[in-house]
Amino acid sequence: MSNATESPDPRAEHQRGPVLLRRGQVKSGTTDQRLLDSQGSSDWVHTDPWRVLRIQSEFVEGFGLLAELPTAVSVFGSARTPREHPEYATGEALGAALARAGFAVITGGGPGAMEAVNKGASQAGGVSVGLGIELPFEQRLNDWVDVGLNFRYFFARKTMFVKYAQAFVIMPGGFGTLDEMFEALTLVQTQKVTRFPVVLFGRSYWAGLVQWLRDTVQPAGKVGGADIDLMHLTDDVDEVVEHIVAAEDHRSRQRANEIAVDNAHRRTHDGQ
């Protein structure tokens, strides 16, 4: 039996936050996993202050990179959507339509539906943004991301999706997509963000979930009818853009009215 160590896979590649590791430098596990895992040595307790600084750096990098984006829309969808699937073509059309309407597009930067949306936006001349995440399996920012940032921590990444977008569009997806969708709805419901459209794209995919919310969750008193109405369900790309543009116009008018009222109060106060 040979005592030689196994050669590293020359194709191995792993993104750890902003750091790229390849071949023999690729290690198992993720930063989120090491933060949340309560098993093993307690030595991690003594490194938490450094983790806080790392978390802080992710917010600083994100704020610095995205602060000057034009008005943006965050789009979520499955990383498992094949390129030959009709949903991929729909994602391209959606990204292009949003770009032509003047919106930057923000996705999770991965493959599947995210890649399709980034591709459509980039090819239409828009700003195509990808916010990646360190995962235990190999995943890199797709080739259609023009502005990209990789995160170690989900919560820092989620903040960027919300802070720099004026709307969410939810394409068919799995747990990650559902997580983002319900987080967005919770933020709107609790008024942590205001006047924030949440569009569910794909009636046949989302209709069962919406019906369950109406037939089971609402009668049980867990949500109100107005909460369910926060979701706009459609199959039409143009309708998505129109709904978001209308919400943005309403937001602009409301903001202008609020500024006018504040100025009037200030003049009244100054004149006393």
Results as ranks from 00 to 15, higher is better:
147 V>M: 14
166 Q>G: 10
178 L>N: 06
137 F>A: 07
159 T>L: 15
185 L>D: 04
163 K>D: 04
181 M>G: 01
155 F>V: 07
173 G>E: 01
180 E>C: 02
192 K>V: 13
186 T>G: 00
177 T>C: 03
152 R>F: 08
177 T>E: 09
160 M>N: 01
157 R>V: 13
192 K>Q: 15
167 A>K: 06
147 V>Y: 05
181 M>C: 14
159 T>K: 02
138 E>Q: 14
134 E>Y: 01
151 F>A: 10
183 E>P: 12
188 V>R: 15
163 K>C: 03
162 V>W: 08
190 T>Q: 14
179 D>T: 10
138 E>H: 04
146 D>V: 12
188 V>P: 03
145 V>T: 15
151 F>W: 12
165 A>V: 12
151 F>K: 06
182 F>I: 11
185 L>W: 15
167 A>R: 11
133 I>Y: 00
158 K>D: 06
166 Q>C: 15
179 D>M: 03
162 V>E: 02
167 A>G: 02
174 G>I: 06
150 N>G: 00
171 M>C: 12
170 I>R: 02
162 V>M: 12
138 E>S: 09
166 Q>H: 08
155 F>Y: 09
155 F>R: 10
150 N>V: 07
148 G>F: 10
172 P>F: 04
161 F>S: 05
162 V>G: 00
148 G>D: 05
157 R>H: 07
153 Y>M: 13
158 K>V: 13
183 E>S: 05
165 A>N: 09
159 T>R: 01
132 G>E: 05
133 I>T: 01
144 W>I: 07
132 G>I: 11
186 T>C: 04
155 F>D: 05
153 Y>T: 06
154 F>E: 03
172 P>C: 08
181 M>Y: 04
191 Q>L: 13
175 F>R: 02
155 F>T: 02
177 T>R: 02
161 F>M: 08
139 Q>N: 10
175 F>P: 04
138 E>T: 12
162 V>D: 07
185 L>E: 07
152 R>G: 01
186 T>N: 00
188 V>D: 13
178 L>R: 01
159 T>F: 15
